[in-house]
Each structure stands twice: as structure tokens, then as C-alpha cells.
């Protein structure tokens, strides 16, 4: 089957659900043709061809009996790009090379979509993923940010612990590892640091960590930002145990997501922040303190928002579809 209508390419993975379906449905309602590409299914199930010569270039994608030319693609949604998944029968000594070559092929292939509208552009996502840059820019646009130390120096960590009066949390800049076989990440959640932990701080020499002052919480906010619009879900901090410093952990009972209206000045800050990063979409985490201050924690340029749409009926997928269709921005 060959698609003839204008296509919006949805870059995701084979385990994705709900959010990908909602965006595809919203695009179809608006007259576009969504094409889901599960990036982890390349090279075993997705077939790519790229023809280049001095007169023209021609690229095709074939997946699940559908075939498109990248010339048909008007927009691309970067939901998630996963690593190529290879079968067990492949000789182990060639696996790494096959994965590396497949990733390089995918990276090269995206160049054929340079004329499309991206939500968001891969280079901008990479730029925005720098968490130290996030904190700097957030501060520059007027957000309060937690006092933060990133270091591999034990003495600096101990001094910072005293500076924040012993109320300190730790986290990493990245997920720990990625398993292609299980398609899972090993994840270290935000953890409270005790004084006795720092007796072992010399081991920071093997790997740095992020340390931040622990911010008092009235509410935790997840903000889905789409092309200037904000969709906010709030969790009441008193609904879960104080020891659980990270609401995302399994087993943490967080209560119900609630609607939350951000003050205009905070929305303006978010718009300025996203403008500096050049992003149309982002999932941001903020803390509302007991004194009513909004503290910026971080942004994930490809973060989650499905729970906000499902539980609060926030029209996020429709907003993403609007952002993908070029007449809307």
C-alpha cells in the first residue's frame, strides 16, 4: 500500500502506547496522515533506502506493509528514538558493529527530512538535554532554581551539605544504562543524602553526581508545554511520605492529579525559557513551595504527559497535532 496524502512521521518505539495513539488520532482528525515508525524495529522490520546522486535524492521507509517517500512527510514528531533491536541469532561478535552502523544509518536518514517541520528538531533536543544549561537558562529567565552542585570532588560535596543545612538530595544527569534486550532503563531516582553517606564521598572520583538543596514542597507540578500553551498537573506533596523524595518511584501513592493554574508571570517565564531552547514541546517539573514560590527543577524535551491527558482531560495530543501542522505555527 502506498500513502498519497501528506504524512506526519511519528518517531517512537514498539512499546509505546496511549500518547502515540492519541497524537495519531488527533492528526487524522485534522486531515493529516500519521505514519508510525518504531525506531527499535530497524533494521529487522523497518526497511530504509536512501538514493543519492548529483541530480536528486530519494528516500523511502517501509514498515508493516506501508511504504512512504520522505518527500511525502510534512512534519515529524520526535516522541522517542530507541536503539536498533537485533535478534539473538546474530553472531555476538558482529552485534555491536551492526547496532552502530544501524544507528549511523538512522542518523543519516533524518537528513532527508530536513524540509519537514519537527517537534522537535533533534539538534535542539540534544541542546536542551544539557541539565546544567537548563538550570542556567531557567535562572536567567527569572526562575528560582535549587542550589546545585555537580562535582566529583568529595570535599566540595561535604561543604555543600553544610551549606544547605544537611537538606540535600542527589541524582544523576543520565539514566544508568540501557538494555536493548529488555528494552528497559536502569534508573536512579532522586535520593536523600545523609551525613553518613558522605563518609564515602571519595568514591565520587570515579563518577560525579548532582547534589541539590532539598526544596520544601506544597505541590509537585508536571507541565506539558506545547507551542506556547501550558497544560499543568499537580500532586499534593502531603499525599505521599516525606521520605519519598521522588514521586515517580513505583509504590509511591501520590493521590490524584489535580488541575493547577499557573500565574501569568510563570507562564511568561516558561515561554521565555522554551524560546531560549528553541523547543515547541517539553515536559517540565516544577515545585510549588509552601510560601508560594515556583521552583524550576528540569525539563525533558521528550517527557511524559499521558497521565495529564487521561486523568485531567487536558487536550495535549490535539495541541501537539496542531504544532505539527505547519499552518498552525
Amino acid at each position: 500500500m502506498h500513502l498519497s496524502r501528506d504524512v506526519v512521521l511519528l518517531l517512537t518505539h514498539s512499546g509505546d502506547f496511549f500518547t502515540i495513539d492519541r497524537v495519531a488520532e488527533a492528526l487524522a482528525r485534522k486531515g493529516a496522515q500519521p505514519f508510525r515508525l518504531d525506531t527499535d524495529k530497524f533494521p529487522l522490520e523497518v526497511q530504509l533506502t536512501a538514493h543519492l546522486d548529483k541530480s536528486k535524492t530519494y528516500h523511502t521507509i517501509e514498515y508493516k506493509n506501508y511504504s512512504i517517500s520522505t518527500q511525502q512527510v510534512q512534519a515529524v514528531w520526535t516522541r522517542r528514538i530507541w536503539e536498533p533491536k537485533l535478534s539473538q541469532e546474530l553472531a555476538p561478535k558482529f552485534r555491536e558493529a551492526c547496532v552502530r552502523e544501524s544507528k549511523a544509518t538512522l542518523d543519516g536518514f533524518w537528513d532527508s527530512l530536513k524540509e519537514a517541520d519537527w517537534v522537535d528538531d533533534l539538534e535542539r533536543i540534544s541542546y536542551a538535554n544539557n541539565k546544567l544549561r537548563q538550570l542556567r537558562i531557567a535562572s536567567e529567565v527569572g526562575f528560582v532554581i535549587p542550589q546545585t552542585l555537580v562535582t566529583n570532588k568529595a570535599q566540595a560535596a561535604r561543604e555543600f551539605f553544610l551549606q544547605v543545612n544537611g537538606k540535600m538530595v542527589s541524582k544523576l544527569l543520565t539514566t544508568l544504562s540501557y538494555s536493548m534486550e529488555a528494552n528497559s532503563s536502569f534508573f536512579l531516582y532522586t535520593s536523600t543524602v545523609r551525613e553518613e553517606d558522605l563518609q564515602d564521598a571519595e568514591s565520587l572520583r570515579y563518577c560525579p553526581m548532582v547534589f541539590q538543596e532539598q526544596i520544601s514542597k506544597q505541590q509537585e507540578l508536571r507541565v506539558a508545554y506545547v507551542n506556547g500553551n501550558v497544560f499543568v498537573g499537580a500532586l499534593n506533596a502531603d499525599m505521599y511520605a516525606a521520605a519519598k523524595v521522588d514521586w515517580r518511584k513505583p509504590g509511591v501513592e501520590v493521590g490524584a492529579w489535580q488541575h493547577h493554574q499557573l500565574p501569568d508571570k510563570v507562564v511568561l517565564r516558561l515561554q521565555a525559557f522554551m524560546g531560549r531552547l528553541g523547543l515547541l514541546f517539553g515536559s517540565l517539573d516544577l515545585i510549588l513551595t509552601p510560601s508560594g514560590e515556583y521552583v524550576f527543577l528540569e525539563i525533558n524535551p521528550v517527557g511524559e504527559w499521558g497521565m495529564l491527558e487521561k486523568d485531567l482531560d487536558l487536550p495535549i495530543s490535539s495541541a501537539i497535532a496542531d504544532a505539527l501542522l505547519p499552518t498552525n505555527h
Binding site: G15, F17, F18, S170, L172, L176, A182, N183, S184, S185, F186, F187, L188, Y189, S191, D197, D200, A201, S203, L204, Y206, C207, M209, W247, R248, K249, P250, G251, E304, G306, M307, K310
Partner: peptide, 25 residues
């Protein structure tokens, strides 16, 4: 805390469920 990095102590404090894919339809 085999030589391990500083973050290993926090990873060890997590449950396996926490460490190993948030509708949590």
C-alpha cells in the same frame, strides 16, 4: 561501597522494581 562509584549506595537502597521500563488504563 569491588570498587563502586558513589551513586551505587543510593542504587542499592532502591528496590529492584524501582531500578528496573510513570499511567502508573
Amino acid at each position: 561501597t569491588e570498587i563502586v562509584p558513589f551513586f551505587a549506595r543510593f542504587l542499592a537502597a532502591q528496590t529492584t522494581e524501582e531500578t528496573e521500563p510513570w499511567f502508573k488504563l
